[in-house]
Amino acid sequence: MNAKLKLFSYNMADTFIHRLSGVTKLVCFLLLTFAVMFSYDIRVILGMMVLSIILMRMAQIRFSQIRLMLVYVLIFLLTNAIISFFFSPEQGVKIYGTKHAFAEVWGISLTWEQVFYQVTKFFKYASVVPLGMIFLLTTNPSEFASSLNGVGVNYKAAYAVALTLRYFPDVQRDYHDIYLAQQARGLELSSKAKFFDRFKNSLLIVIPLIFSTLDRIEVISNAMDLRGFSKSKTRTWYTSRKLSRQDVLALVVSAVLLLFTVAVSVFINRSRFYNPFI
């Protein structure tokens, strides 16, 4: 594993998007994500995708920051496309209710409906990715927990997220050190070992990691109790920000986009699907 991996490469640029409060960004992210997850209309989905790519530009996100993620996403989407074709080549026909075959491979007929369904699905999956990236790469981790609390998540659950972000690098470093310490005690960890041995060996690392974490949980929760955590029903946040006019604007625009998506489905398509075949 790569010990040098960074959590998020949060970039400190000062753009319109960075200046939005964490709560705003979280709410907008959720509204827009919901919109693309709801809609099965490729026009809406592509529109949303173009919008989010423009936003990415505005946030000065560099390609190098997201290259690796894109590779993973593409691998995932292509595998999904292939498997889902072989599992159910008629899925498109079932959804759109017509059948326009244009070719045949190994006895399976290729239909335009299936192509359209799979292309739509491809973009539907893909279009949430830039939204997520913008949110992750422009939100200061410190602001994240207070934003969750700001949108109504219980503050204790929100603080659990803050603790995860705080201690992830520590856990990662511990894991690496334990891995090395075990090798120094004589543990063979090469990939040549048999399946069962490799399984046993990974336990030899996971067990100390967990037990040292249990000790640490005790110390941290004592430290938090001593400083009054969870004594009242609410708490304030050092990092929370007041909503500015820009925040309100962003929220309104996102809400309108969601309503628009729903309206397109209800009034124009009369279903979640856009059906060009009838």
């Binding site: 995860t164 640490r216 929760s221």
Partner: peptide, 26 residues
Amino acid sequence: VNTKTIVATGLGAAIFTLLFMFVKVP
């Protein structure tokens, strides 16, 4: 839910994340 539950959740999630990404037994 007390403080310890919250801390266990936070750190447990950190371990979960790490193992989920890196420690898969083939």
